[in-house]
Amino acid sequence: MTMATGLSDERIYEVFARKNRVDRFEHVGTVTAPNPDLARVYAWQTYDEAKWFEMAVAPRDSFYAVNLTQRPFTLGGPPPVGEGSAADSDSPPGYGTPA
């Protein structure tokens, strides 16, 4: 249940984008949305700091952990580029405190 809408099934979506066809995708941030349509709109309108060649979203809970037991994206570490840079973080990549 989210306070904002009173509607029950909002999900966190991870947002990935790349500026050029030859680039790798960067993880640029997250949005919270009730359905994939709105997740796409929110991602595009929120992370508009670059003229992206391609952007994609996926529900956070669709990712499977590979080496750790915790769900991906739920541990601390360098924030995605949309929310600052690795230089802002006290912790080495992948070893932050749980969010």
Partner: peptide, 13 residues
């Protein structure tokens, strides 16, 4: 708007 994201969308629109 009902969420921060929806408010950002309204601003962009």
């Amino acid at each position: 708007a009902p969420s921060v994201e929806a408010g950002i969308a309204c601003s962009a629109m």
